[in-house]
């Protein structure tokens, strides 16, 4: 078992640790109590409330003006680890603006807000498990715990299935980003191959000619479905 799946928390690699990042006091230590799946089944329709509107996945058009930055299309497919598409999954994303600034009270970065960009989007996967967003390429930003560490350009993904226990949180990185090796969150994943799975690929078929650059980011959900027979 790798450290980062043990099973809830992250352990920062050497060089990134700061004293207050002491996971001992923040995360569960007792072994999980394993019970049959049916006893923690949560099959309530979790996306019924606040179902995304038709334009909630277009972060370029949420304001009167056009946001600063490189306009991109991000799309991909959500599957389980058997490769079966997961449909009707609520996909929520959040990201910094082109300057690397979040619309969030806690963001200490001395960078400007973009009045035409919020950085939040929502959509549901279709019958093929596919999602699409139009947005901007976010800026990198210094990590708030250590100004020498940088968060490489990324888009956060929060996925909610029909059962809450399908909750999945990951993030999309950009190919060729020189800051990937300076990113403390990416660095919590010890395996290089696994880190690569966070990196989207350039996808000209998804690009809107003259308007957006396309990226494809497929998401494989792990540990969510015990066996195919349970569906």
């Amino acid at each position: 078992m790798r450290a980062y799946t043990e099973p809830w928390w992250v352990q920062l690699p050497e060089g990134f640790s700061t004293p207050e990042f002491d996971t001992e006091i923040w995360t569960p230590r007792k072994p999980l109590v394993i019970v049959p799946s049916r006893l923690i089944d949560s099959s309530a329709p979790v996306y019924g409330y606040g179902t995304p509107g038709p334009t909630d996945n277009d972060l370029l058009s949420q304001h009167d003006g056009v946001p600063m930055g490189e306009h991109i299309t991000v799309h991909g497919r959500v599957t389980d680890s058997w490769g079966r598409p997961v449909r009707d999954m609520l996909v929520e994303i959040w990201q910094a603006n082109a300057a690397g600034k979040y619309v969030h009270d806690h963001d200490p970065t001395p960078k400007p807000h973009d009045p035409h960009f919020t950085g939040a989007g929502r959509t549901l996967t279709n019958a093929h498990g596919e999602y699409t967003f139009k947005t901007i390429k976010p800026g990198a930003y210094p990590w708030w715990r250590d100004p020498e560490a940088w968060r490489a350009q990324h888009i956060h993904f929060g996925l909610t299935g029909r059962g809450l226990t399908e909750r999945y949180v990951t993030q999309m990185q950009f190919p060729g980003d020189p800051l990937l090796s300076r990113d403390p969150v990416v660095s919590t994943i010890p395996d290089a191959k696994a880190r690569e799975r966070l990196v989207a690929e350039l996808d000209w078929e998804a690009a809107i000619p003259g308007i957006t650059v396309g990226y494809r980011f497929d998401i494989v959900l792990g540990g969510v479905h015990a066996t195919p027979a349970e569906h």
């Binding site: 950085g119 708030w144 949180v169 966070l198 497929d218």
Partner: peptide, 26 residues
């Protein structure tokens, strides 16, 4: 890319933390 047998299981996308700004998106 769809797998047909358990030996063809796809490797999951790594999970990451929510980070401090997740209330923006969720």
């Amino acid at each position: 890319g769809a797998a047909t047998a358990s030996s063809d299981r796809l490797v999951p996308t790594p999970r990451t933390i929510l980070g401090p700004y997740f209330t923006l998106g969720m």
